[in-house]
Amino acid sequence: MADERRKVERQIVLPLSKAVEISFKSLRIRFWRSLITTSGIILGIAFLMSIFTNNLVHEGLLEEGTLEIKVRLQGEEVEFSARQIWLVSLSLLVCVVGITNAMLMSVTERYREIGTMKCLGALDSFIWKLFLLESLFQGLVGSILGVIVGGGFVILAGLLRYGGQVISTFPVLPFLGYALAVLAIGVVISIIGSLFPASQAARMVPAEAMRTEV
């Protein structure tokens, strides 16, 4: 009997679904705060998508548009210029920094919460998953919205400028390809941005987390 209770076992690793459930709930409840983080991703991704879409609109018009349009489009950008690449890299960098910042804030804000979870038996890996999943959700939602906003805005602007031809000459398949690529970039960026904050959260010693004054 005495030996029975003396034994120390190993804590089980929770299924991913539990982490998904908890991180999802925490995002939903901190809705407005997560929306602010997400809006950073939306902007960055929308910017990226607008550059791609703009090139596609011009490309379509130059290939199949009327002569008048083609003359008007002389000198507009179709291929990626050095300037565009520079702008895109910069906006992506801003995205990563924005996410890292937002996630770090979310970690600091929840110092005590993380410490408490560790006291209740959470493994480091669980805390990792919690924060990675949270930013994954935010990255996914932000990227989807960003693609819609960025692509939609440029197409709308093209319609106003060049009329219905924009739609009839629009290269739909390449557009979908870009949309998917941009989506993937958005998700990858938000994961990269949350790696450091998540590791900070997971490495925290519970005693340290409990000590922090409110």
Binding site: V8, E9, R10, Q11, K118, C119, L120, G121, A122, L123, P206
Partner: peptide, 8 residues
Amino acid sequence: YELAWLRC
């Protein structure tokens, strides 16, 4: 893992 089990 054992420490987490203990705390839990």
